[in-house]
Design a protein around this nucleic acid. Structure first.
Lengths: 153, 153
DNA sequence: GGACACGTGCAATGTCCTTGCAAAGCCAGT
DNA sequence: ACTGGCTTTGCAAGGACATTGCACGTGTCC
């Protein structure tokens, strides 16, 4: 899985910057005819190199004004423990990102909330209810400096 | 700034899930004629509610296999100190996310790297070179559990 | 050298996006 | 309730666009 040449790389770069670029413009940008470009894009999509296209909506417009970074430790690192935690955390729609981490904490989460009251609800109904959790540490984002969809974009 | 009614909300939900949905399909989905739908979408884009569209590319295809979470403390919290740090960090293409935080550390960063060697280079050439930094703490993601573009999507 | 697979460009067809325009809905003030 | 003005809608047309079939060129392997 992966792009094959410089043209595929150029296509990927273009659609990362503008997911709604027309095939005609994309073809011109990468130096191909529209048909050839359309077929390459099709291959990149079907092979899974391109996972999908998304609109980026201003969180404020959706009333999600708050971002919390949550560090979580579990009671153990057995596979069963991790699996149960992960299955549960996937169900919470407010969790935007979740990584299993090296270091002091086991998981790090990025959580979106409408306001502090909303976060309190999420913390109470979702985070505290996750299985095997022994420690939760929430920090709040005061300001967003960077939010890039991809490297160098 | 924000959507006005249920139809705008439905449009936003749709384009968050599929940024390349055709206007015709979108119109049918939200129960409008294509022209009315196109005009609403146009307003949502021009008013900044929709920040843009992007393709989600498999990081593996781009050879970025590593995600690091970096906590950074500065030598002070004066506006000038923060501004200089932020201007500098914005220049590093590998920094995907950066928040000014409450709590123990001042900033939290999400950094993409191709491999450990690449991360070492980023750490040396970029992160360590950021102004006013007194403490850097890097943790590495062992596995990605969730990566949602938006709440509930 | 020949057969084959692969990628490309060209052309055509059908779909789609967009804009102008008239009508309908909506709200405020009387 | 009525009227005036503003907003939003649906329809229609024209122009742009995506997609598919087909033929040509290139490189490879036998």
């Amino acid at each position: 899985m992966g792009q094959r040449d410089a043209i595929d790389a150029a296509i990927l770069k273009a659609v990362q910057q503008n997911g709604r670029i027309s095939n005609a413009d994309l073809a011109e940008r990468v130096g191909l005819s529209p048909s050839a470009c359309s077929r390459r894009l099709d291959i990149l999509e079907k092979s899974g190199v391109i996972n999908g296209y998304y609109a980026r909506v201003s969180p404020k417009a959706l009333d999600y004004k708050m971002i919390a970074i949550v560090h979580i430790s579990l009671s153990g690192q057995f596979a069963k423990t991790l699996n149960e935690f992960e299955s549960a955390v996937k169900l919470c729609p407010n969790v935007l990102v979740c990584y299993l981490m090296s270091g002091e904490y086991d998981y790090i989460l990025r959580v979106a909330a409408k306001d502090l009251e909303d976060y309190e609800r999420i913390h109470r109904d979702w985070l505290s209810a996750l299985p095997h959790v022994v420690k939760i540490n929430s920090s709040f984002a005061l300001r967003e400096i960077i939010d890039r969809p991809n490297v160098g974009v």
